[in-house]
Design a protein around this nucleic acid. Structure first.
Lengths: 117, 117
DNA sequence: CTCGACGGTGGAGTAGGGTCCAAGGTCAAG
DNA sequence: CTTGACCTTGGACCCTACTCCACCGTCGAG
């Protein structure tokens, strides 16, 4: 698939896709005329990238896990493992938020809400 | 309190404190020799800034709520209100994370974890 | 053959949030 | 009086994640 279609299917701009390829987040073959040719898996991969980004991962980190993933025989299994890790991360992040929430809740209504924790 | 002490007590660098003052996140009087003189409340305020930042607020947004806060007679009450809003925000963020978590959990173990959501 | 949509490249620019540096002033201790 | 810690300023620089631009090549339709 060429860049325009990939961009359309993921909602990214063509510039962003090119940027992602430059930074190693994405790889493409080249057609004889020099056009990029992306595999169909690029679509779900980019969706995953967006998710990971929403979880606070930098593009560099995402690219690294992507590299680790390619070349592994059991890609589906490895990916499942990766997802399990991300879930643990979400749980940690949610616990962190719960802590912040409790801290704020304790301050609400206190005489001086900015008093040290 | 001078900049060094404020930096030490908040764990920020002196440069960061100056940067925050420049961007209006923080105000300081000046001593006769030109040194910045921060009020003691700057310490909990900066802690609050870090919290708000962790919640995804930009420094500009935080500065704006800070401005709204000063000049209000019932500062403690206003701040409590602000905290209530932040709590709602945390709840929203947690719900978002719960959604992502469910998405990932559904994919774990699936034949193709990258299949469309 | 020309046109328009699409693709390519390199390079500059942006916003946000700092970080570092050089040159110099202030001040208490020795 | 010097030294060292601390403070000032202005300005340059960095990283991340894009975004835009000019200029050029490719290709199918009319």
């Amino acid at each position: 698939m060429r860049i325009g279609e990939l961009a359309a299917q993921t909602g990214l701009s063509r510039d962003t896709v090119r940027f992602y390829e430059r930074t190693g987040l994405l790889t493409a073959r080249r057609l004889p005329n020099g056009y990029r040719d992306f595999p169909p898996e690029a679509v779900p991969w980019l969706r995953y990238v967006r998710t990971a980004q929403a979880l606070g991962f930098s593009l560099a980190e995402i690219a690294r896990t992507g590299e680790e993933l390619s070349g592994v025989p059991d890609a589906a299994g490895a990916l499942s493992e990766l997802f399990r890790e991300k879930i643990a991360l979400i749980d940690a992040r949610m616990a962190e938020l719960a802590g912040l929430r409790a801290d704020l809740a304790a301050r609400v209504g206190a005489g001086c809400p900015l008093a040290p924790a």
